[in-house]
Simulated assay, not measured.
Amino acid sequence: MQKNSLIKAMEPFGLALADYFLGKEVGDLFMNRDDGSKDKHPVEYYFRNPSDFSLFEKEALKLCKGKTLDIGAGVGPHSLELQKRGLKVHSIDISTHACDIMKERGLKNVECMSYYDFCDLHKENFDTILLLGRSIGFVENLNGLKKFLMHCKSQLNQNGNIIFDSSDLRVTTKPIHLAYQKKNQEEGSYLGEIRLQMEYKGLKGNYFKILHVDPDSLAKIVLESKMKYEIVMKEETGGGYLVRIFV
Rank of each mutant, 00 (worst) to 15 (best):
M1K: 04
N4M: 10
K8D: 13
M10W: 12
E11C: 03
P12S: 10
L15K: 06
A16G: 03
L22D: 11
G23A: 10
K24M: 02
K24H: 14
M31W: 01
R33C: 13
D35P: 06
K38T: 10
K38M: 14
D39H: 11
K40V: 14
V43L: 05
V43P: 05
Y45D: 02
Y46S: 04
F47G: 01
S51C: 13
D52L: 05
D52F: 00
L55G: 02
L55K: 07
E57I: 15
E57F: 09
K58G: 12
K58T: 03
L61V: 02
K62I: 12
K62V: 11
G66K: 13
L69V: 08
D70F: 13
I71S: 01
G72P: 06
G72H: 03
A73H: 04
V75D: 12
V75G: 06
P77Y: 02
L80H: 03
Q83M: 12
Q83F: 01
Q83I: 04
G86M: 09
L87T: 09
H90L: 08
H90D: 10
S91H: 05
D93F: 02
A98P: 01
I101S: 13
I101Y: 10
I101T: 06
E104G: 01
E104V: 08
G106D: 03
G106S: 10
K108A: 14
E111C: 07
D117W: 05
F118M: 05
D120R: 11
N125E: 13
T128G: 00
I129V: 12
L130W: 09
L131Q: 07
G133N: 09
G133F: 15
I136E: 06
I136S: 03
G137C: 00
L142E: 00
G144Y: 07
K146I: 08
F148N: 04
M150P: 01
M150N: 15
K153E: 07
K153W: 04
Q158K: 14
I162V: 14
I162F: 09
L169D: 10
V171L: 08
K174M: 15
P175C: 03
I176V: 12
L178G: 12
K183S: 07
Y190T: 11
G192I: 14
M198I: 04
E199P: 00
K201E: 14
L203C: 00
K204N: 15
G205R: 00
N206V: 04
N206S: 13
N206Y: 11
K209R: 12
I210V: 15
L218K: 06
A219W: 05
K220V: 10
I221E: 05
V222T: 06
L223C: 01
M227W: 07
K228I: 01
E235T: 02
G238Y: 11
G240R: 09
Y241G: 03
L242K: 02
R244A: 03
